[in-house]
Amino acid sequence: MFTYKTFVPRCATTGMVLLALSASAIAQPLLDGHNIKPELGRLVPDYQGTIVSGNGSGLPLGQASVEQGERVFNARCAACHGLDGKLAGNQLAGGIGTLATAQPVKTVGSYWPYAPTLYDYIARAMPYNEEKSLSVDEVYGATAYVLYLNGIVKRSEVVSDSTLADIQMPNRDGFIELQQ
């Protein structure tokens, strides 16, 4: 597209045709940038990505019960988080009501505003050093069990792509959004 003797004036828009080197181009060398773009992006209309938002958009189809989740949690999560999710340093459960005290305990139950975020984070970043090794339903299971350890869902419940966004987190209204 560009040849050694073909330049585009730096003020040109991308719609403009290429212009031959001119005296004015010499007078204004391209020292401080230009905005002539090659437009090389390839169309990927089917790309879905794996980002799950707080409102549940992006959640894949799937489900698991708290009991199924208990087996996943105990096998894959409990070594770092404790069987009750309260191992210091990686605490996931408890702490509700402590945020305004001198020693706040921030956990999924006491602090996280959205339940789908739990799915997103486990699916992308857990277990540490074995990231992305859980199946979709195993991630729903671990999500369900962590919510259960926090008293947010009952032991008999099933968590799925259609229910996760409706789960009310205790600290849902605890944040002030500075960029809105």
Partner: peptide
């Protein structure tokens, strides 16, 4: 998108 994602690293 229209909304933030509210990921773990901007909430927790």
């Amino acid at each position: 998108q229209g909304m933030p994602a509210y990921t773990r690293d901007e909430t927790a």
